[in-house]
């Protein structure tokens, strides 16, 4: 770690204020080019500590930068991870106030709910599938606090991987007999398909993102507890949304989930 505790606290407050007041900021590595990965996760953890102190509760975890294309573009070999708190959750069919966000985009995701704890290192797809209670469709709304979504890896980790809202819905399905690689994913905006893909777009298999998360936490002496909800990563490019947009996600064998931006 290259930043002192005071700087980490200041940067956490700076980024959290940007989220709460819905305004963009310049990526923090401009002023702190020496910050490292551990600093970035420490800032992310400090933002969470601030929220928990105000009464928020963690309701799930997320993986980001899970496509090989994005990872190549950012020059990394593992995805990045963040947390989700209670007020991020939007009901299926519910409304999201666009004015509370900066420049939101939506991503289609396969969501895992675990029934057993997962602990790395050495966590693999088989362990994840055995520990999965069910999967379901989810729309993640991302909203980088950085100007024009321009960030580097450390800045985006500190910003809790651009997390802001998520919508869960559709139907739950057991992973037994389900090939998550070939699940078709169709994201529609105002009735028109705008992004189409299949599960394999996430690290070759969405369960690999969950395994990577368990291994990331394992390196810190932590685990994914039983009963954890995890967004496994965007299956397609993120799509920008405006007030008035209706977004519907359909995933093969998992039904659909939708939200409206007002």
């Amino acid at each position: 770690m290259n930043l002192n505790q005071k700087t980490i606290e200041q940067l956490a407050e700076h980024l959290e204020n940007a989220e709460l007041e819905a305004h963009e900021v310049i990526k923090i590595t401009e002023a702190h080019p020496d910050m490292d990965w551990d600093d970035a996760y420490a800032i992310q953890a400090e933002i969470l500590r601030r929220k928990l102190a105000r009464g928020s509760r963690v309701v799930g975890l997320k993986a980001g930068l899970t496509s090989h294309g994005k990872m190549k573009q950012m020059g990394v070999s593992t995805p990045v991870f963040g947390w989700l708190v209670d007020y991020f959750s939007v009901a299926d069919g519910g409304e999201i106030k666009h004015s509370e966000l900066i420049h939101p985009k939506v991503e289609p995701e396969i969501v895992f709910v675990t029934k057993k704890a997962l602990r790395g290192p050495g966590c693999h797809i088989g362990a994840v599938l055995a520990a999965t209670d069910f999967v379901m469709p989810g729309i993640e709304i991302i909203d980088s606090r950085y100007k024009d979504f321009k960030f580097d890896l450390k800045s985006v980790i500190a910003d809790n991987c651009s997390s802001t809202r998520f919508v869960l819905g559709g139907q739950r399905a057991s992973v037994a007999g389900l090939d998550l690689r070939t699940l078709g994913v169709v994201l529609e905006k105002n009735g028109e398909p705008v992004a189409i893909g299949a599960g394999a777009a996430v690290l070759g298999h969405p369960a690999a993102a969950i395994a990577a998360l368990a291994n990331h936490l394992g390196a810190r002496g932590e685990e994914i507890p039983a009963g954890t909800m995890i967004l496994s990563g965007g299956v397609t490019e993120a799509v920008s949304v405006s007030p008035g947009d209706h977004v519907n996600l359909r995933i093969q064998s998992l039904g659909s989930v939708s939200t409206r931006f007002v």
Binding site: H68, G184, V185, V186, P193, I196, G197, A198, G199, A200, A201, G204, V235, R250, Q252
Partner: peptide
């Protein structure tokens, strides 16, 4: 190497 994913709706 996975180069394309898609679905019937395309």
């Amino acid at each position: 190497e996975i180069v394309v994913t898609g679905a019937g709706a395309a």
